[in-house]
Amino acid sequence: MNARIRVVVVDDEPLARSALTLILGGDPELELVGEAADGEQAQAVVREQSPDVVLMDIRMPVRDGLDATRELLSRADPPRVLVLTTFDADDMVLRALRIGAHGFLLKDTPPADIVAAVKQVAAGRPMLSPSVIAQLISVATAAPSEDDQAREHARRALSTLTDRERDIAEAIGRGLANSEIAKELHLSVATVKSHISRLLAKLDAENRVQIAILVLNAGRD
C-alpha cells in the first residue's frame, strides 16, 4: 500500500480549518497531520510533521501566508504549498506564486476539487487551471506599472527561447496540461515534457507556475 499524502492546514479561522479537516479526512489517500492558526505556528508544525502538502491561508494575523510560504520553500526539503484565498483576484496570490507556491485554491472550491488539487500538487503537478490564469492576469493588468523591472526581466528571459519553446511557455501560461499542449501543437506528450524540462532550466524556474508568471509579466504593457 502506498503511503498516504500528509497534509497540514494553516488558517486563522477555526471554522475553515474544521471544514478542510472534514474534506481531507474523507479521502483514504490523504492524512491530515497538523493544523496551524497563523504562519508562525505553521513553521513549527511543518518542522515536526514534515507534510507533503501545506494548505496555506494567505491573509492571517501574526504572520501572513506569503511570508510563511517564503520561509517554508526555503527549507532543504520543502513541502508543496497550495495557497488559500477568499478572493478570486488577490495581489498576494500573485506574489505567492512568484516566490514558488505550487498553486492556489479559492475557499469556496468544491470539496472534490480541493481533494483533487492536493493530490495533483503532491504528484508534482502545480494546480494551475485556465480560470486561475485569467484571475492572475486580471490582477496583473489592473495593477499600476510599478513592475517594469519584472516585465523587462521576463521579456529578456523569454527572448532566449526557441519558437517552439515559446509556444509551449505560452500554452503553460494559459493553464494547459501537457496532453492539451501536445494536442494543440501536434506533438507527443513525451516531447512536450522534454521541452518543459529545458524551459525550466533555461528560465531558472522551479516549476511551471513560475513559467506562467514569466509569460504573464512579459505580456504586460
Rank of each mutant, 00 (worst) to 15 (best):
residue 216 L to F: 07
residue 137 I to T: 02
residue 214 L to H: 03
residue 91 D to H: 00
residue 77 D to V: 15
residue 203 L to D: 13
residue 219 G to R: 02
residue 109 T to A: 03
residue 142 A to R: 11
residue 135 Q to Y: 04
residue 164 R to V: 00
residue 53 V to N: 06
residue 89 A to D: 15
residue 197 S to A: 11
residue 65 G to N: 00
residue 66 L to W: 13
residue 163 D to Q: 14
residue 138 S to E: 09
residue 174 R to F: 01
residue 84 L to D: 02
residue 93 V to G: 15
residue 173 G to I: 07
residue 126 P to W: 09
residue 134 A to Y: 12
residue 145 S to C: 14
residue 205 A to I: 04
residue 69 T to Q: 02
residue 31 E to D: 15
residue 130 P to N: 05
residue 187 L to Q: 02
residue 196 I to Y: 12
residue 210 Q to R: 12
residue 143 A to S: 09
residue 3 A to T: 07
residue 63 R to H: 00
residue 191 T to P: 11
residue 118 V to C: 06
residue 172 I to D: 01
residue 86 T to N: 15
residue 144 P to R: 09
residue 12 D to Y: 13
residue 153 H to E: 15
residue 141 T to P: 09
residue 209 V to F: 09
residue 14 P to A: 10
residue 153 H to L: 14
residue 92 M to F: 05
residue 52 D to T: 03
residue 183 K to H: 07
residue 14 P to Q: 01
residue 176 L to G: 00
residue 78 P to Y: 13
residue 30 L to I: 13
residue 12 D to H: 10
residue 183 K to E: 06
residue 26 G to H: 04
residue 182 A to P: 08
residue 55 L to Y: 12
residue 168 I to K: 00
residue 101 A to C: 07
residue 75 R to T: 04
residue 83 V to A: 01
residue 221 D to E: 15
residue 91 D to S: 15
residue 80 R to M: 14
residue 158 L to Y: 04
residue 22 L to D: 07
residue 32 L to R: 10
residue 196 I to E: 03
residue 203 L to K: 06
residue 11 D to T: 07
residue 50 S to N: 01
residue 137 I to L: 13
residue 195 H to V: 11
residue 178 N to S: 05
residue 24 L to E: 09
residue 206 E to C: 01
residue 142 A to Y: 05
residue 153 H to G: 06
residue 187 L to E: 02
residue 65 G to F: 06
residue 91 D to N: 13
residue 135 Q to D: 05
residue 13 E to T: 05
residue 104 F to M: 13
residue 182 A to L: 10
residue 52 D to Q: 02
residue 138 S to C: 14
residue 18 S to R: 14
residue 157 A to E: 07
residue 46 V to H: 08
residue 33 V to N: 13
